[in-house]
């Protein structure tokens, strides 16, 4: 127990001393869960100077990371400050199946990226790398200035408090009401008192326009409502980046617009960067600042939706064939 608490203290120290926390204090800072906003320069001096000196003094193998040292950067230069997600030459395979074959992709702070591609091309696999649900076979995954692929479980969990992931079906826990679903996260990750929690939950539900569902079970909600409650549950943790896995699939056009507008609103009002996976061109048109088209395990085209649509790669033409009905973004 003492070992654990010592480690927690050591982590908390740089959190208090770390300079340049860019987005102000994180709501979870008070219980020592959130890391400093990952010094983008990746300089080891970001931590406590004394502790840093001794850690670096040891002759360590270069690929081993010291959990108590500053940001996890490995040996590569970190991306510039305004890049929140940077995938570099990422490879991932499951057995003989190679899904990703050298993906390069960057997402700028405060923008919405959209990943498009046919079914089974590895779009979900790609986004799961960004939250550390999967680790690359090869390549680097930079998120908020640190390398996710080099982190241990504890570091990863700290980083995850700044990331949100909206799953396809909302991934609400069936056995709990909407309120309990949201409360569950707060109970476990924070030391807020009950009133504060209730306020946060109601604010979250109002953000997605569903305060009336507070005491309902997920089974009683429609598909679109589940997604929105899922989003509220993600938002309650005040993430810096949200990943949306097919946020509009299976919804009627009105709901598509509601959810897409919500994503845009979050970007504009709270500066939340996002990566969305979608097949839905209407949603892509509303949401996308930049579209990345995944093909054969690589990003075949990237740019605005129009640029990608005009690409002369046959697969892309096939994908966008007959979509002129939507008009141009």
């Amino acid at each position: 127990m003492s070992r654990i608490s010592r480690r927690a203290d050591a982590r908390r120290q740089p959190a208090e001393a770390g300079p340049g926390a860019d987005a102000g204090p994180h709501p979870l800072d008070d219980d020592g869960l959130a890391t400093p906003a990952s010094d983008p320069t990746g300089a080891p001096a970001a931590g406590v100077p004394g502790a840093e000196g001794t850690a670096r003094g040891d002759a360590r193998e270069p690929h081993l990371v010291d959990p108590e040292a500053g940001p996890v950067t490995g040996n590569s230069p970190p991306p510039p400050d305004d890049i929140v997600v940077d995938l570099r030459d990422v490879y991932k395979g499951f057995g003989p199946k190679k899904i990703l074959r050298g993906v390069d992709m960057t997402v700028e702070r405060g923008t919405s990226a959209v990943v498009m591609g046919g079914s089974g091309t590895g779009k979900s696999v790609l986004t799961k790398h960004v939250v550390g649900l999967l680790r690359p076979d090869k390549g680097e995954v930079w998120v908020l200035g640190e390398r996710l692929d080099l982190m241990d479980q504890e570091q990863l969990d700290q980083k995850r408090t700044r990331l949100g992931y909206l799953f396809q079906g909302g991934a609400l826990f069936d056995s709990m009401t909407v309120y309990e679903n949201m409360r569950f996260f707060l109970d476990r990750l924070t030391t807020l008192d009950r009133g504060e929690k209730d306020d946060l939950i109601m604010e979250g539900l109002e953000d997605v326009n569903l305060p009336s569902t507070r005491d309902q079970y997920p089974a009683e909600l429609s598909g679109g409502q589940k997604k929105r409650v899922g989003l509220a549950r993600t938002l309650i943790m005040q993430p810096d980046i949200i990943l949306y896995d097919e946020p509009t699939t299976g919804l009627d056009p009105v709901s598509v617009r509601v959810v897409s507008d919500l994503i845009v609103k979050l970007r504009d009002t709270r500066g939340i960067s996002s990566i969305s996976i979608t097949h839905d061109l209407l949603a892509a048109e509303i949401v996308a600042d930049r579209v990345h088209f995944l093909l054969d395990g690589q990003i075949a085209a990237a740019g605005t939706l129009d640029e990608v649509r005009r690409s002369d790669i046959p697969e892309l033409q096939e994908f966008f064939k007959g979509t002129d009905a939507y008009g141009h973004a």
């Binding site: 799961k128 408090t161 990331l163 396809q168 079906g169 609400l172 826990f173 990750l189 943790m237």
Partner: peptide
């Protein structure tokens, strides 16, 4: 079914072990 409906992944991503 928690795995299939991604509830386990949701816990994992929220750092809930």
């Amino acid at each position: 079914s928690m795995k299939v409906t991604e509830q386990i992944d949701a816990l994992e991503v929220a750092a809930l072990k």
